[in-house]
Design a protein around this nucleic acid. Structure first.
Lengths: 187, 187, 187, 187
DNA sequence: TATGAATGAGATTTCATTCAT
DNA sequence: TATGAATGAAATCTCATTCAT
């Protein structure tokens, strides 16, 4: 998946990510990206010889960000805030990231469109994210609780669905109630 | 968004729906559809003067199907089966429809790509679906319960997220536990 | 190998053949061809959705022409002209066709460049040509002569080599002596 | 056409020759060559300021090899082996060199593509080869025989044609019979 | 109603070549 | 001597849409 290490690689990724989050990968031409970065199409090709390769690296960056957000919240666990409160914060935090959400859904579409390599990376990183979620719950409700598996899966599913609803309908889901639901699973 | 009335409209929609569910709207050319239907591109244009119009009608058909599935299950409510059981059945049923799921996500992408008219129709029909869900819950837990709003929103969100997970990761979510969660919201 | 039967197909082939014979397939752009035919690039694509498909059909046409020339000469066999004379005429005739020669070599290059489908067609048509040569020799020296196989192979090889020499060095080979050689093989 | 003297020139030529023999000059990018040699594109440009110049030098190397093979066989002339036998050996030897054959045909294509300088060098070296052939025949059948001119031209033409047939159809021509033909020209 | 033909605009990809360091 | 980065020009391919018949 050819990454030709260099100095502007990051700038390319950053800019491309923003454009793709706004318009979607399929509707973003390499010309658009090159222009926005301030380089020629040829130079873009020099760094990323394929649109696919570019999206591939953007996917990595994307999940890095998502996971980083979760980890950041993990720090709050164990402070005075209650379990339900923390969960609510988590959902709110992720639900509020519009650019991330849009990018997430656009990458999803790419994956569905039959890009095998991208699917593999996407799946990997998604699992990683799910693992982070499980750690989060462990910190919150104690290690080795039998409800962990179901709770994390339900939360991930909910987050995914909420990403869709938030992006398309600009409508937030009932975070507090969802948090309550989960808490009771542990009850 | 006009249909140009005609006789093969339904066949066109049916075939187009299948192709788009498989490859996505963006990756399906009108030539593909015309060929699959067995007509010429020119004729396809006679019936649908725009690709957009075609996708528009497909969206209607799509939600018809989804809602019809929900209504069908509503019949089971009140039979001997328990509340939790019925909810599980509902989630399982929707989660099992792979073609519907794929189509749903591909239409979602179209909507995100900035098609305003389609967004309006999509939103309308989605709300209709959500109303159906509320009726379903009313039948199950009694009318006018304060938890209805949250429960239906959470369920819709979960279903949406599960559509993604099922389609991309071919992995079903923990339906029974989700059903349990919801039931307790009413407890 | 998609041939979308139609009325301008032949004109496209004719023009494309001439340009490719002059510049080679690799150095002839679809734009060049479209312009020469007097159609747009899009229209050219409508008829030939791939450069490969175009070259594929040109190859067929090419061997048609080559074989037709041989068959034409077959008519002279049995007239008062001697065997050696006829063979000389054959070699001269083929050697004089400059456009055909150039096209032949350019197609050869395409075949070598790894186009499997083209290779198959090229090989088929070449064998057909070689069969025609064998018939020619049968008519000249009588059926079932043991020297037929070698003679036809040597002649084909010589013709191939002479195509190169004629095209590149603009230099004709010693046809009469070659004809003599062959005649003696039968002696 | 200038070489920019340097230390790795030979390695570059050697590697480039192999790649071009495999894929053809037109399908071999300078990036491919640079990578195979283990240097950067910039460095390759330092040694060869033009792709043309590189192919130019490769052509020289190529004919060096071809002629060297012929000269080597010349040594066998006059040993107990018969004339026909020697000629057969010669044709077999050249026919067996697959990489050389491919390279020969690819260079031929370059020449045909309108590279004037290359044509001049190619023609020069080809004549040199043909002279070598004449010397070979002189050694075999005695100096100053009137058949020399025709015999060498026919042999060269046959070899050229056989290069094509061997490369494209992976099929060897009837060497012994060709050798017989030639011998009889001297008879 | 139906269609084959035509097209223009634009997308991705490729690459020889240049150049500052 | 060596190189990574940059680029412009061009090539192939794609496709929604139009239109004469």
């Amino acid at each position: 998946m050819a990454r030709t290490s260099g100095i502007n690689q990051d700038k390319i990724l950053e800019v491309a990510e923003a454009i793709i989050a706004a318009k979607g990968a399929k509707d973003t031409s390499l010309k658009d990206i090159a222009k926005a970065v301030g380089i020629s199409k040829g130079t873009l090709y020099y760094h990323y010889s394929t649109k696919e390769a570019l999206v591939y690296d953007i996917t990595a960056r994307h999940f890095d960000q998502v996971i980083r957000r979760m980890v950041r919240l993990t720090g709050k666990v164990g402070q005075k805030v209650g379990q339900e409160e923390i969960l609510t914060l988590l959902l709110e935090d992720l639900g509020a990231q519009q650019q991330i959400s849009r990018l997430h859904l656009y990458l999803l579409h790419e994956v569905m469109s039959g890009n095998e390599d991208l699917l593999a990376r996407y799946t990997d990183r998604y699992r990683e994210w799910q693992d982070t979620m499980r750690s989060f719950l462990s910190g919150l409700f104690g290690e080795e609780h039998p409800a962990h598996a179901a709770a994390s899966a339900i939360l991930m599913t909910f987050i995914e669905g909420n990403t869709v609803r938030g992006t398309v309908f600009e409508e937030s889901a009932p975070y507090r109630e969802m948090a309550l639901c989960i808490t009771r699973l542990y009850g």
